[in-house]
Design a protein around this nucleic acid. Structure first.
Lengths: 216, 216
DNA sequence: GTCTATACATGGATAGAC
DNA sequence: GTCTATCCATGTATAGAC
């Protein structure tokens, strides 16, 4: 669009950061041009000058925030080589998210997308960044199990991402409940990890049984 | 409180229904005393007269709506006897939710609870109704598998409920993605169902292996 | 090009009419 | 007891100052 002077970029960045802070701390219901501008320390009308509308600012903030968040965890996810490790990393991310709230932010935008049509594609895009990372991990991890050929990493990655968003939102109203949910999933991970470690003979038997009964 | 005249109850009910309609159709961001009252066909100020504040109305609507929704599915959940059946019922519920949106409504309230403190307990309570139902099913279903003794139905029920809320919200911005997520989970259900049908000898072997490696 | 002052719309809440 | 008219706060958007 414009040549993007330093001053303009500075203000835009302040607004993006302000939008993220407001969304995570106040939620979509309390996010407005005024509240965001207050968090950013700039005049309220600059939202409209630089982004056209509140929705477009939020859409931009979504992309901006999701990229940052995913980049933050990318290395750790790339190091995962088993399902139980994936669960452990998920748990660690959850702990950080308690403070950062980047995932719950997607929940806020998902909720807002209901009315603010412009948020739909942006939020889907932000979630997609997570999905892509998770899918890569799942492809790697599932190939090592007897279940690899019966699972769909692309679909599962979507399920995992959406589920994680749900759990992060849930954590906001019942921290104990969310903790027990993650505990249970971790336990489930240990279970599957144990199956991963079945001897080669048993693995072949399971695989054979699955091929007969679990035809997709 | 008051003797609850017929007229008062009528207005309250209209407001509760109006709140549910507004939350599902417009989302938490567009839900206000005015929009709810418009949907209910009553004067805006009646929200405050009958419920004290918008938040208290939403909290009441949450209880009201969650009870209705859970009652609607209770019989079907009670009939579930296996994991794959549970997944199938979950899928069927999702299809109905596309129209009804009772679960996505919990997502909206979860998002709103961030700021509107009064919504937190109410939403947690609404979710709890779902969790209780799911937990009962899981207790029943898991006992029949070789994994029963290594899983925590209470925690898993929370994980399942939160995940389902996340997927319903996700469906709002990417229907195809949500469908593939559910497909993948269904496929996973078939997989586990196949393991359920391992012969008794193999089941004992798996169980034995788990006892050694998956000590909780 | 960047931002402020200002106009107009919507939302929350209550004093007082019926 | 039930509800309406009305007030003030908050939100969106733009016309015009710098």
């Amino acid at each position: 669009m414009s040549p993007e002077t330093a001053k303009s970029l500075e203000t835009k960045n302040r607004l993006l950061e302000g939008a993220l802070r407001t969304l995570t701390e106040q939620g979509i219901a309390k996010t407005s041009a005024r509240t965001v501008a207050a968090a950013a320390g700039v005049n309220q009308a600059l939202v409209f000058y630089h982004f056209g509308s509140v929705d477009e600012l939020l859409a931009a903030a979504c992309r901006y925030g999701a990229e940052q968040a995913v980049a933050r965890y990318r290395a750790r996810l790339a190091a995962v080589t088993s399902l139980s490790e994936l669960l452990a990393v998920g748990r660690a991310i959850h702990e950080e998210e308690r403070a950062g709230g980047h995932v719950a932010l997607l929940g806020q935008l998902l909720a807002g997308a209901q009315t603010h049509a412009a948020l739909g594609p942006a939020t889907a895009g932000g979630l997609q960044l997570w999905i892509d990372e998770i899918e890569q991990v799942l492809v790697r991890v599932l190939a090592a199990t007897p279940f690899g050929e019966f699972t769909d990493p692309a679909g599962l990655a979507r399920a995992v991402a959406a589920a994680f968003v749900g759990i992060e939102l849930y954590e906001g109203v019942d921290a104990t409940g969310a903790a027990s949910a993650l505990d249970a999933l971790e336990q489930l991970g240990v279970l599957v990890a144990a199956l991963e470690e079945l001897g080669p003979v048993a693995q072949r038997a399971v695989r054979h049984h699955l091929r007969r009964t679990a035809r997709r």
